[in-house]
Amino acid sequence: MKKVFYIVSFLLSLTAFSQNQVLFEKANALYNEGKYAEAIDNYNAILDTGNHSADLYFNLANAHYKLNNIAPSVYFYEKALQLAPNDDDIKNNLSFAQNMTIDAIDVIPEAGLSKLLKSITNTMSFDNWAKTAIGLVFCFVVLFLIYYFAYSTWRKRLTFIGSITSLLLLCLSLVLAFHKYNLDKKDNPAIVFAQESKVKSDPNSRSEESFRLHEGTKIQVLESYNDWKKIKLSDGKMGWIDSKDIKLLNHI
C-alpha cells in the first residue's frame, strides 16, 4: 500500500508541476502582451498551489510595478530577494519600486564592530553555518587521529596545528550559527499595504497618533497584541499599527 501511495503522490506532484509550468508560461506571455492584470491572476494561481520561487515572485512584482501597485510590487520583490539574496536584477527593480513610496526614512548607522559581526554572520544562512561546523568537527577528528597515530615529528606538528585551527574555527562557526539564528528570529519584516496608516502610541484606536506611514514602506514587527502590531522603523521610531494595514514577509 505504501508503494502505491508514493507512486500516486509522485504522479500528482508531476501533474501539479506540469500545470504550474503551463500557467507560468501563459502568465509570461500575457505580461509580454501588456496584459499585466491577467498575468497577475495566473501568477497568483500558481502561488495558490503552494509553489513558490524567486522567479515567480520576481515576475509577479514586475507585473504589479507596471500597474503602479506600490505595496504589492515592493512586497513581491522582497519575497524574491529572500529566496535569491544575491540577485542584482531583483535588487535593482526593488530600488525602482521603493522610489515610488512616499515615506523617506533614515537608517541609523551601526557601530563598527556590530556592523562587522553582522556582515560576517549574514554571509551564510544558519543551515550553512551549521554544516560548516559539522565539517570542521570531522576535520578536527581526522587530524587529531592522524596526530595521535603519527610517528614523524613534522607530521605530528602539522596535524596538531591543523586540529587546533579546526577546533578554533569550529567554535567560531558555532558562535556565528547561533548569532545568525538569533538575528533571523528577531527579523520579522512587513510591508505597509494601506494607502495611509496611522501609527498609534498604544495598541488601541483611541490612543495618540505618533506618525503616519504609507503603502510600500518596510517595517519591523516587534510584537502583537489583539489586532495590533508593535513596529519599529529603520530610524528607530516605534509605535502600534493595525494588523490589517500590513503584510508580513516571513509568512506565505
Rank of each mutant, 00 (worst) to 15 (best):
residue 114 S to A: 11
residue 66 K to Q: 13
residue 198 K to M: 15
residue 162 G to Q: 01
residue 113 L to F: 05
residue 90 I to P: 02
residue 98 Q to M: 15
residue 193 F to T: 06
residue 171 C to K: 05
residue 159 T to S: 08
residue 164 I to F: 03
residue 148 Y to K: 15
residue 112 G to Q: 15
residue 81 L to D: 05
residue 124 M to V: 12
residue 145 L to R: 15
residue 125 S to E: 00
residue 148 Y to W: 04
residue 118 K to D: 15
residue 157 R to D: 11
residue 197 S to K: 09
residue 180 K to P: 04
residue 95 S to H: 14
residue 116 L to C: 12
residue 97 A to F: 00
residue 121 T to M: 11
residue 135 G to C: 02
residue 160 F to I: 08
residue 73 S to P: 00
residue 188 N to R: 13
residue 146 I to V: 06
residue 106 D to Q: 11
residue 94 L to P: 00
residue 100 M to Q: 15
residue 156 K to W: 02
residue 142 V to W: 03
residue 183 L to P: 10
residue 93 N to H: 02
residue 190 A to I: 00
residue 105 I to L: 10
residue 124 M to E: 11
residue 135 G to E: 01
residue 86 N to H: 10
residue 86 N to C: 08
residue 150 A to F: 05
residue 168 L to K: 07
residue 129 W to S: 02
residue 73 S to Y: 00
residue 110 E to T: 08
residue 176 L to F: 06
residue 65 Y to V: 11
residue 64 H to T: 00
residue 175 V to W: 08
residue 91 K to D: 05
residue 192 V to F: 03
residue 117 L to N: 10
residue 195 Q to C: 12
residue 130 A to I: 12
residue 167 L to F: 06
residue 176 L to T: 05
residue 108 I to A: 08
residue 155 R to P: 03
residue 92 N to D: 11
residue 111 A to W: 09
residue 95 S to P: 14
residue 84 A to H: 08
residue 180 K to Q: 11
residue 115 K to P: 07
residue 98 Q to I: 13
residue 73 S to K: 00
residue 181 Y to P: 11
residue 88 D to L: 08
residue 109 P to E: 01
residue 83 L to N: 01
residue 114 S to R: 12
residue 189 P to K: 04
residue 99 N to W: 06
residue 138 F to I: 06
residue 138 F to D: 15
residue 170 L to A: 07
residue 135 G to P: 05
residue 143 L to E: 13
residue 133 A to C: 01
residue 130 A to L: 14
residue 181 Y to L: 12
residue 84 A to V: 02
residue 182 N to M: 06
residue 109 P to N: 00
residue 148 Y to P: 13
residue 90 I to V: 03
residue 149 F to S: 14
residue 95 S to F: 10
residue 188 N to D: 07
residue 142 V to Q: 08
residue 134 I to P: 10
residue 89 D to E: 09
residue 152 S to Q: 14
residue 79 K to E: 14
residue 80 A to W: 02
residue 144 F to Q: 14
residue 135 G to H: 05
residue 130 A to Y: 04
residue 144 F to V: 05
residue 152 S to P: 10
residue 142 V to C: 04
residue 117 L to C: 12
residue 138 F to P: 09
residue 193 F to W: 03
residue 156 K to N: 05
residue 98 Q to F: 00
residue 167 L to G: 05
residue 146 I to G: 03
residue 197 S to V: 04
residue 178 F to M: 14
residue 114 S to F: 10
residue 84 A to E: 07
residue 128 N to W: 09
residue 120 I to S: 05
residue 165 T to H: 01
residue 119 S to Y: 04
residue 162 G to M: 02
